[in-house]
Computed example of a mutant assay.
Amino acid sequence: MEYETIQDTDIPKIGLGTWRMEGATCRNAVATALDLGYRHIDTAQAYGNERQVGQAIRNSDVSRDEVFLTTKVWPMHRKYDAIIDSIHESLARLGTKYVDLLLIHWPNPAASTSEVMRALSDARSRGLTRHIGVSNFDAEQLESAQESADAPILTDQVQFHPYSPQRELLDYCQANDVVLTAYSPLAHGGAMHDEPLATLGTKYGKTPAQVALRWVVQHEGVVTIPKSTSRAHLEENLDIFDFELTETEMEVISRPSRVRTGLSMLRGRFGV
């Protein structure tokens, strides 16, 4: 496993995302991931699976302090007290005294950024989380959140894959000591059928998905949390640190496309 070090914190380059995982499927996926060597697990209040994630961590042979655990606050909790109360509820469901990273799940235009970030900052000062961050914020929104927070923002978690390389946001994060956490790095399966990725996979003896993940983590200041429930795919996702793409190959893979990004989101939402 490789790590991204930022703000004196080591974050595993590859983690497990748990969006749309439920019940025993979620518990088994997290348990399998931990058994294989994953030490970065991502969940959220909105996912409805914090309890299952917490159970899997507690039942594993891995110590809690070895797991980098992230959860995200439902953005409809927009007032200070509601946010703090929801964090305590998350910790109770997870069965832990703290999370390693606490995010606001996405910007709510009806919420005060100052009030939201004050609540997250106070959660950190109370020991409910080691770090705070945001999710689905653009560069301008991230800058505003940084100005409003009393604690450093560790990450912005956003969709990031070859069709959505987030160049403006990535530049901002790299210049401001913020790690970019990439969700949907395989474009909801779109990367699996991508010709340039397949061609490079043949060259390196890797699958298109592995090439896409390598492209993601080879960026400076980027970590990723692909979702998988299959042991074989979980193993495959970890097996990306024994080859390196050239600068030219990195550019070939990166093809910003609103159409492909939109199609990937439809696949994720509706399975089309």
Rank of each mutant, 00 (worst) to 15 (best):
P109C: 13
E249G: 08
D138H: 07
I57W: 02
K72C: 04
C173V: 07
Q45E: 14
T70P: 09
E66L: 09
A92Y: 07
I253G: 00
Q166S: 01
G189Y: 09
G268T: 07
S86E: 04
D35E: 15
P196S: 12
N59M: 09
H131F: 11
V53W: 00
E235T: 15
E249I: 02
V272T: 13
Q52L: 06
I84A: 06
N136V: 12
L101E: 08
G205L: 11
A44V: 05
R130H: 15
T96F: 02
T207D: 00
K227Y: 02
I84M: 12
I153H: 07
W106E: 01
E4Q: 12
P75A: 10
Q174R: 13
V259H: 15
A119R: 04
L16G: 06
V216P: 01
V116L: 06
S63I: 09
D35G: 12
P162E: 06
A46N: 14
V252S: 07
R260G: 07
T5F: 04
S114E: 14
R93P: 00
S135N: 13
D61H: 09
P256Q: 14
S144K: 14
L238N: 05
G23A: 14
I11Q: 00
Y47K: 04
F160D: 02
H188M: 12
D8A: 12
T155D: 11
V216G: 00
L36K: 15
E244S: 12
S257D: 11
I83R: 03
G37T: 06
P196C: 11
V30W: 01
H77M: 05
A46M: 15
L238W: 03
T5Q: 11
V222M: 01
V30S: 04
R39F: 08
K72Q: 09
R255V: 09
A119I: 12
Q166L: 10
G15P: 10
E22Q: 15
Y172H: 02
I6Q: 05
V62D: 04
T202A: 14
T70G: 06
V259I: 15
A232C: 14
T113K: 02
F160W: 02
R58L: 04
G95R: 05
Q52P: 04
R58V: 01
Q146V: 13
T199C: 09
V178G: 03
E115G: 09
V73T: 07
V259W: 15
W74G: 00
I153W: 05
L34N: 03
L34W: 06
D10M: 01
G271N: 13
N176T: 06
I57N: 00
V216K: 03
T207M: 08
E247M: 10
G48D: 01
H77R: 07
A123N: 00
V134R: 02
A198E: 10
E50K: 11
D65Q: 15
L213V: 05
L213C: 02
Y47M: 08
S63D: 13
M117Q: 09
R124G: 05
D65I: 11
N176P: 06
E22I: 12
S228T: 05
A119C: 12
D242K: 15
D61W: 02
G54N: 02
L266P: 06
M117C: 09
S125H: 10
E4Y: 07
